[in-house]
Design a protein around this nucleic acid. Structure first.
Lengths: 125, 125
DNA sequence: AGGGAATATACCTCAATGGGTATATAATGC
DNA sequence: GCATTATATACCCATTGAGGTATATTCCCT
């Protein structure tokens, strides 16, 4: 039997890597390789955490060319919404998460590869 | 190395039993046997979940005679506070948690054993 | 002191999970 | 079609956690 939605959310966020991923995706959709780069983790590790989040509907994916662009779902269930606010409040000063955001900004600035646009408007194809 | 406080909180709440315990303790301090009764779980199971919560400072204990009375800490870290609000919002309509509260009320009403007073004022000793 | 109630802990087992390596799959560019 | 890039998945291994049984501990009462 499927556990409570809130428990699913907690299970997703109780791992540091997944917490960092969600924290990043709240700012911008990102492809796997950008996440990999920002987080400094192996491709497999990132991919598996994304699968975990995906299976529990905490993130959604869209293929853009050869990139898989992950983002938070457009319509966010109440449980997730609470947590996003909580992250803002509790993590914004933490070194790890500050660094992540700094790297994110750098990534998005000099975004040479066509990947992970800030908006999905450009029907990349 | 100790994980982030927020992650500790998530780890505590990502289990249904512990979530129910915290949800109950938010209403009233409780001894182990009352929790055991309300949750309908074995003594060992309850005790171990309480140990888990205790080790991560999500609950505190006070001995009252032969009962160990558990409660949420007086001063609640910000991370926990967010979650308590979230529980209120997301769980209050869920059958399991409604039933728990109903049983809690019953327990506290006909509280024959001297255990788990609503207030700690009565310095039982 | 001795018995009983309440609670914690030591093991044991099983399932889930996180990380890694190797490999499969899918899209791109030539 | 083929090599390359991006991503996912299949295993393998080590750790953790949840539940159970048996037992230790602590306190109360007589």
């Amino acid at each position: 039997m499927k556990p409570l939605p809130l428990i699913e959310v907690y299970n997703c966020l109780c791992d540091e890597t997944r917490l960092r991923i969600v924290h990043l995706l709240e700012r911008s959709p990102l492809c796997v390789c950008h996440l990999q780069d920002i987080l400094g983790l192996s491709q497999v590790a990132v991919s598996k955490h994304l699968a975990y989040l995906r299976q529990r509907d905490l993130v959604q994916v869209e293929r853009q060319g050869q990139w898989m662009v992950y983002s938070l779902p457009a319509s966010r269930p109440r449980e997730l919404d609470w947590q996003l606010r909580c992250l803002q409040d509790c993590l914004s000063t933490h070194p790890i998460f500050r660094t992540d955001l700094r790297k994110l900004k750098a990534r998005l600035a000099g975004c040479c590869p066509p990947a992970s646009p800030q908006k999905f408007s450009a029907k990349g194809k």
